[in-house]
Amino acid sequence: MLCQSCNERTATIHLTEISEGMRMESHLCEVCAQKQGLAIKSQIPLNELLSTLLAAQSEPHSSEAAPEAAADTSCPACGMTLKKFIQKSQLGCPHDYEAFGEPLQGVIQKAQNGHLRHCGKVPSKTPVDARDQIQLMNLRQQLEEAVRNEDYEKAAKLRDKMENLQ
């Protein structure tokens, strides 16, 4: 099916709208859909993500000099500022993850599909309780997935493992 707007490209977006009891169908290609302002999930480059973040912070509701203050947050260990990070998309040192707190958390959440906590390999040198915590997280996720896939045998095994750790 061709896009009904440009009649050139294949329609890949099929939209059904119901307003005031009327049903409207439109079939568009991606380019035309974007032109009409239909949101399409796309990969946002990190620097763009970062500048939107800063823009969001400088919205007036936070009053006074908050945006400038946020941009000027600097890490006591390496001197990196949030503003510089936004320009370079690279942090200055491991402490920045703590120093830039919430604004950075927002970026990470957006870039990492909503995730905020590591669940995966842990260095063997990590203290035992921290390692157990991460492993628990790990198992919990696997359990959820097993339940979603209706693999109850696997789920039972995972639950036993979790109980051993707790």
Binding site: L91, V107, A111, Q112, H115, R117, H118, K121, V122
Partner: peptide, 17 residues
């Protein structure tokens, strides 16, 4: 390494694993 964020990387797009 951070127990919350995992392996810390220069760019947050690589953090975690």
């Amino acid at each position: 390494f951070d127990p919350g964020y995992g392996y810390l990387t220069a760019c947050p797009t690589n953090v975690g694993t």
